[in-house]
Structure formats: C-alpha cells, structure tokens
Amino acid sequence: MSATQEPIRLAEIFRFLAQTMRYPESSWFTDDFLSVFKELLVQLGHVPQKSLPAKITDAILEEIQVDYTRLFINGVPHVVAPPYASIYIDGTLNSTTADKTREYFRSHGFDITTNEFPDHLVTELDFIALLEDEKQGSSEEFLRLYFRPWFAQFRDLVLAEAEVSYLKTAVEVIDFFTRIETEADSGQAA
C-alpha cells in the first residue's frame, strides 16, 4: 500500500473518530482499524499504551463491548456516560438540546438519517465531518456552541470510569480534535 504524503484532512479524522465511538463489532473493529488508531496516536506524539490490545481477539472484543454497554447503553449500577448532549444540558433525553441540534443540522442543509437522536456523540461527529468536508474550519461554531458544552463532562466521566483503555483513548483523541484553540495556543505551539 503506497503511503500518501498529502496532509491529512480534518473531515476524514472526524469521520474516523465517529467510527471509534460506534458499538464495536467484528465487522469493522479489526486489526486494520486498530493499527490506524495507533498510528493516529503516534502522529499525535503519543506512544500507544501497552494496554491497547496488540490484536483483536473474540475475548478482547467482548471486553470492549461489555465496557461500551456499561458506559453508554445499560450499565450497573447505571449508565456511566450517556452519549447524548441533552442529558448533560437539560437533564433529560431527547429534549430541547436535541431539537436545537437538529435545527442546526437543518439550517446547514443536513438532516439525520438514522433512528439515533440528533445529539448523540456519533451523530454530532458525523455532522462535524460533513461540515469540514464542505469547508475546512466551518465546524468551529458548532463545536463551540453545541459540542464542547457537554462533551467535556462526558469526557471526564469516561476517563474516570472506563475500564478498557481503547475507549478512554478514543475519547481523549476526540477531545484533542474538538478543543477550542485560542490564538494564544496556536502561537505557542508554532
């Protein structure tokens, strides 16, 4: 496979990040997927932790599935981090925040295609990818007004409670790519 030297596009990264937050299934949660994930970490100047699996086995997949279910779907004692903005902003599911989010999609010429709620983490990341497809940097407003206000709380819950490091790491990478960077940040790093 030939290595591309073109700079990576943000849209592609968001699309990839959305994938990381889907329910892991053997159809896509493969060694290939994992190697791309690890490479992304390397590029971020981060040596992948040993706790990330070397290879995907049935047992490892199940471990991640169980943790995913506990964190995001139905857990004991309770779902740790429901991946919906409404929960963090309104306290209820599919409430005003979900409506506003969908309105935002629609006012930018998009609409949801699944039976997920519009303010689900994956849906929002998909949307960001689409915005970035159209014009680089055009997701800034959405990130600031819609995504970050709840994602920071979500991230903290996952980082504190997740048992498998894959999910923790994925959330950290999403955090990195969605952070609002000030001019000062950029200046410093440059």
Binding site: E12, R15, F16, A18, Q19, R22, S27, W28, T30, D32, F33, V36, F105, F110, D111, I112, T113, T114, E116, H120, V122, T123, D126, F127, A129, L130
Partner: peptide
C-alpha cells in the same frame, strides 16, 4: 476503516 454510514446527510 470507516465503514458505517454517517448518521447525518
């Protein structure tokens, strides 16, 4: 490695 259809279109 991105296989899923986007949830927004």
């Amino acid at each position: 490695v991105v296989t899923a259809q986007a949830g927004v279109a």
